[in-house]
Design a protein around this nucleic acid. Structure first.
Lengths: 199, 199
DNA sequence: GCATATCGAAACGGACCGTTCCGTTCAATA
DNA sequence: TATTGAACGGAACGGTCCGTTTCGATATGC
């Protein structure tokens, strides 16, 4: 007995190894189900059927349904190329238009599912908080740059600005209102940047 | 046979009528479950157990779980007294602080559950859109009033302003970040109202 | 060959949804 | 007051899903 190494680590490679094909098939099936039917049609059983995999195989590599959902979500390449239009107004518009188009292409369903899951699952909530903080940092750079250019007031907090624009985009996604006209987006961005107070 | 009236309408009142006690017990049990454990612990079976009611009784009056959730949600008294501090900055601060305190008192779990449900259920999504539009109208009045007072620029759109502040509050709720310090809220409101552009 | 590890298929217990049946209770009416 | 129809709670149902267990088959390293 006790044939394991003293350090407790499993031996590296005896026996069959994890099938990369199966892993890919599971992730692709899960993503497809989410994009097509959202969280309602996303179940481990449906993923297994579609991937021609066994449920135990899924549970061998993912501890539960939420983790699989998060894996699909985090695996999505942002594919958001760097934004730099030269003005903060142009940057914000490009950000929102790019985001809305990306979400409308199917990824919105995945993101919405993560949001839904995060309302009752702690691990999903934590993952979403981490992701949101990361996005705030990235978007904040747009405002940092604009500040460097002298476009913004000196006492502006880029993190707050990034949070406001992200909150707007998310609320549009989560209430199913991504069909904003260009003109509407322009008015919103302009008011967000200029504020409302009389000057 | 054919003892029903020719117009097909049911007779108004023969037999027992809907028990107001039972209806109240069901709604109270449902609300309590949502406030205590969120959407995860909200099931028709649990509601029936807690309300000492039969499942068929619930399904007799509510077509499905989502409608019962929405009924609990819409029955919550907003209890939000009218806001009028004299300045738009004070109004926005009072709005956010009141909202956060209200949500922290337990109602936040109910609202979060509606948001989660709305990500995969169309009737919940529609109800949420309607509610959001209503809130935009109410909050927009704060900005209308400020405009009347001459506090705001003439070309400000109160609806956009209301949408931005609601989006900020919701994103805080949905990502579990209601613990904003007073100072943080003040900075956010100030930046939202003044904008970020150099003037 | 033999031990180990993976795989898919099938089945399981448990929870829940939404429905059906049953016997009881309640209230309007004849 | 007796009758009648409607609402009630309890029990059970078929179905779906979660997460687990068992099984036989297959792939890999010693």
């Amino acid at each position: 007995m006790d044939r394991k190494p003293a350090d407790g680590k499993r031996r590296a490679s005896v026996g069959a190894r994890r099938s990369a094909d199966t892993e890919a098939a599971i992730l692709e099936a899960a993503e497809a189900l989410l994009r097509e039917g959202g969280l309602a049609s996303f179940s481990i059983e449906a993923v297994a059927r579609r991937a021609r995999a066994g449920k135990p195989t899924i549970y061998r590599w993912w501890p539960n349904k939420t983790r699989l959902l998060l894996d699909v979500y985090l695996r999505q390449k942002s594919s958001m190329e760097a934004i730099d239009t030269g003005s903060i107004e142009g940057d914000c518009l490009a950000l929102l238009e790019g985001l809305f188009a990306y979400w409308k292409s199917g990824s919105g369903q995945v993101f919405r599912s993560v949001f839904a899951e995060a309302q009752s699952d702690d691990t999903a909530a934590e993952a979403l908080r981490d992701y949101a903080a990361d996005r705030r940092a990235v978007t904040g750079q747009l405002f940092e740059r604009a500040k460097m250019r002298g476009e913004l007031s000196d006492n502006v907090d880029p993190a707050i600005a990034a949070e406001l624009i992200a909150a707007y985009a998310w609320s549009r996604l989560l209430t199913g209102r991504l069909d904003a006209l260009r003109q509407e987006l322009e008015a919103t961005v302009r008011q967000m940047l200029r504020g409302v107070l009389k000057r």
